[in-house]
């Protein structure tokens, strides 16, 4: 589905970005990219989405869908002059022909009643739901999410994580989700790739085989959490010692 081979993108003379990243994503899979802030997660996602290019390595999106990747950013990035419905149809050349599609995706994210509202009247969670509907409406072969819920309060965040899983149940969308939240990754993802260092490299990969939806208090997930935490902590200790002095 999505194949990334030895991809690198470096900034600041090789002191930032990511390097030598290799992974594949199967159709219908949700893959999490987990890492501390500054390890190049956003950069990786921008390269995958085509907003940026890799310095070396290859990225391959093999599928039959007309539109490549759909992207959900950390901020909703809605067009403030368009209604919720028109925002959902933003990717279409001729939005007025696709009202039905818009209605479908709006109901999927639970915003049917707000089709005519303007972004300024939406709460943060509603705005991000709109962004999700917009990304889905163009039927991307893979959905790329960059810390999509990190700006939301804890409760809204959990609601939207579950919404994402509901959408996956219904549409079996392939997703790559960047996050710095271990719990989020373990709740949502089938596979978690841990990045560490600056530039970020793959430090570990975990397959989470517990069936979705998972309980948030599932104890079997706690062992993963501990392992991931120790990797991230370990990769950070060098930095911390340095900064304490």
């Amino acid at each position: 589905m999505l194949t990334v081979k030895k991809a690198s993108r470096l900034f600041k003379d090789g002191a930032a970005g990511f390097k030598n990243i290799t992974f594949t994503v199967q159709k219908g899979e949700i893959v999490g990219i987990l890492g501390t802030s500054g390890c190049g997660k956003s950069t990786l996602l921008r390269v995958l989405s085509g907003l940026d290019h890799a310095d070396s390595g290859t990225i391959h999106l093999n599928d039959g869908s007309p539109s490549g990747a759909g992207v959900i950013f950390q901020e909703p990035r809605l067009m403030p002059w368009l209604s919720v419905e028109d925002n959902v149809l933003f990717g279409f050349k001729n939005p007025s022909k696709y009202r039905k599609q818009a209605a479908h995706y709006l109901s999927l994210v639970g915003l049917s009643e707000f089709a005519g509202a303007l972004p300024r009247d939406l709460s943060g969670g509603m705005a991000q739901r709109t962004a999700i509907a917009r990304a889905l409406a163009s039927q991307p072969s893979v959905l790329l999410l960059d810390e999509p819920f990190s700006a939301l309060d804890a409760f809204t965040k959990m609601q939207l994580q579950d919404l994402l899983l509901d959408i996956w149940q219904e549409e079996k969308t392939t997703m790559v989700m960047v996050t710095h939240d271990i719990d989020e990754a373990l709740h949502v993802c089938d596979r978690v790739i841990v990045l560490s260092g600056q530039p970020g490299e793959i430090a570990a990969e975990f397959k989470i085989s517990q069936p979705k939806p998972r309980s948030r208090s599932d104890l079997s997930l706690a062992t993963y959490k501990e392992k991931i935490f120790s990797i991230l902590e370990y990769s950070n200790t060098g930095l911390q010692k340095y900064s304490v002095r």
Binding site: G50, L51, S67, F73, R77, F90
Partner: peptide, 11 residues
């Protein structure tokens, strides 16, 4: 710039 990026995502 962030809004323009949305347009770029849609080519």
């Amino acid at each position: 710039r962030k809004l323009i990026e949305v347009g770029k995502v849609y080519h």
